[in-house]
Structures are given as structure tokens and as C-alpha cells.
Simulated assay, not measured.
Amino acid sequence: MSQWENPGLVVEWIWIGIGLFFLTTLLITVLIINYLKSIRKNKQKVMQLVRNTQTECWENTLHLQERDRERLAEELHDNIISHLNVIRLNINHKNTEELNLDLKKSMQQIRELSHNLTPPDLGEIELTDLIADYLDQISKTIHVDFRHMITDTLISSPVKLNIFRIVQELVTNILKHANATKIDVSLRISLEYLMLTIEDNGSGFKQGTSHHGIGLRNIQTRAQKIRAAYKLKSKPERGTKFIACVVIES
């Protein structure tokens, strides 16, 4: 007798088929639910990472703004206001030509301060020209040797701005604290990386000690914004050397 001629056996196979279908459907449903939960968890992690990154960027921005305010206050107090006060005290002891020369020096200091604080027009000027223009003003105070080797590579505006500000920060601190007579600046830009080197022949400092004049925290913040690796080398009476490397993203 064939199995299909036995109604009980047919019903049993039908129920087995229904059971297997139910189990398969249940298994697929569980897998889909777990997959959707995993997607939601990953999405939450990504959103949290984005929020953390935004918070960190905002904190870095506030820090840089505060540093610029402190620098502006320091420059106004230590240089410009002090210089103008000397002119005021000597107004009755100097002739017109000497006073005119002193006023021109004060105007030049104000012009340099404005140039340092004003964001440059990054879209219409190359990074080498930006740095060269700044160093040309500094060369009136100290001997500067600027060497550069570049290829036809597109540099993003954030990289331009932060590299330029790092140069300003380092040169400003060299002029204030290093007692140097020469600054060597080297900029190399290839298709894959950007390499910046700044070296002076000043007094240097012992590494591992607190050296607030270098503005290392400000440099570190700007380097992090463009994912730059950097190293600062210095020895007492042996000068200071700064090297930074940025990977060029295509």
C-alpha cells in the first residue's frame, strides 16, 4: 500500500511541513530582528561619535579663539601700547623727524598684528606665497631663509590655514623667547604628503620641562585638526627644530 493511500500518514507529513515552515519563518524573523537591532546600535554609535567629534571641534575652536584674544591683548599691551607710551613721554624731548619715525614703527606693528589675526583669502593664494609674504615682513626683524619644493597638488583650505597659523605661532615665539638671529623654514609638498620644518639658532630649552612660550598646546590643537604628525626637538643653547607632516588626501 502506497504512503499516499494512508490518510493519517499524509496528514502527518503536512504537519511536519507546516512545522518546518514555521520554524524557518521564526528563524528568519529572529535573524532580521537581530540585524535591525545591530543596525540601530551601530547607528547610535556613529551618531555618538559624530556628536563627540563636533563637541571636540567646538572646544578646539573656542580654545583657538581664546588664544587669539590673549595674543591680541598681549601684543597690544607689551608692544603697541608700551611703544606709544614711550612716544608720549618723549614728545617734548625729540624732534619731529624722530617722533615721526617712532609713529611709523608703531603703525607697522599694528599692520603686522592685523595681518596675523585676519584670516587670509585661502582660495586665491598658494600656501607657499602665503608663508613667503608673512616671512618677508619678519625678515625686517631677523634673517629668514625660506626654501620650498612643491608639486602641482591641491591643498585644502583647512590645511592651508592651520599650517599657516602654526608657522605664525612658531615664528612669533622664536622672536619673543629664543634670542635667535636666524630662522630656517622649509616646505615640501608632494602628491602624497606635506612636510614643514622650522628651525632656529636660539637659546632652546630643556625638553620635558614646562615651556609656555612655545605655545605647544595651540600648535597641538591645530595639528590635530588636520591630522598632522609633528615633533619638536630642542636643547639648551642649541636652538629648536619643529617638523610636521600632513598626508595629502586626494
Results as ranks from 00 to 15, higher is better:
residue 201 N to V: 05
residue 201 N to R: 01
residue 201 N to K: 04
residue 201 N to H: 11
residue 202 G to D: 07
residue 202 G to R: 06
residue 204 G to K: 09
residue 204 G to Q: 04
residue 204 G to A: 11
residue 204 G to W: 12
residue 205 F to Q: 09
residue 206 K to V: 07
residue 206 K to A: 09
residue 207 Q to Y: 11
residue 207 Q to V: 15
residue 207 Q to S: 14
residue 208 G to E: 13
residue 208 G to R: 14
residue 208 G to D: 13
residue 209 T to A: 04
residue 209 T to M: 09
residue 210 S to F: 08
residue 210 S to H: 05
residue 211 H to M: 07
residue 212 H to C: 03
residue 212 H to I: 03
residue 213 G to N: 12
residue 213 G to D: 14
residue 213 G to Y: 10
residue 214 I to K: 10
residue 214 I to D: 01
residue 214 I to W: 14
residue 215 G to L: 11
residue 215 G to P: 08
residue 216 L to H: 07
residue 217 R to D: 13
residue 217 R to H: 15
residue 217 R to K: 15
residue 217 R to Q: 15
residue 218 N to W: 04
residue 218 N to F: 06
residue 218 N to C: 08
residue 218 N to V: 12
residue 221 T to C: 13
residue 221 T to K: 15
residue 221 T to A: 11
residue 221 T to H: 05
residue 221 T to D: 09
residue 221 T to N: 10
residue 222 R to A: 06
residue 222 R to V: 08
residue 222 R to I: 14
residue 222 R to N: 05
residue 222 R to C: 10
residue 224 Q to T: 12
residue 224 Q to V: 03
residue 224 Q to E: 14
residue 224 Q to M: 11
residue 225 K to D: 03
residue 226 I to H: 08
residue 226 I to T: 06
residue 227 R to V: 04
residue 227 R to T: 06
residue 227 R to Y: 06
residue 227 R to M: 05
residue 228 A to D: 03
residue 229 A to M: 07
residue 230 Y to L: 10
residue 230 Y to T: 10
residue 231 K to E: 14
residue 233 K to P: 00
residue 233 K to N: 10
residue 234 S to G: 02
residue 234 S to W: 00
residue 234 S to L: 08
residue 235 K to L: 11
residue 236 P to K: 08
residue 236 P to L: 08
residue 236 P to Q: 10
residue 237 E to L: 07
residue 237 E to K: 03
residue 237 E to C: 01
residue 238 R to C: 10
residue 239 G to W: 03
residue 239 G to E: 00
residue 240 T to Y: 00
residue 240 T to V: 04
residue 240 T to R: 02
residue 241 K to C: 08
residue 241 K to S: 05
residue 242 F to C: 04
residue 242 F to W: 05
residue 243 I to N: 05
residue 243 I to M: 04
residue 243 I to A: 00
residue 244 A to K: 00
residue 244 A to P: 04
residue 244 A to G: 02
residue 245 C to Q: 15
residue 245 C to A: 06
residue 246 V to G: 09
residue 246 V to D: 02
residue 246 V to E: 02
residue 246 V to C: 12
residue 247 V to E: 05
residue 247 V to G: 02
residue 248 I to T: 06
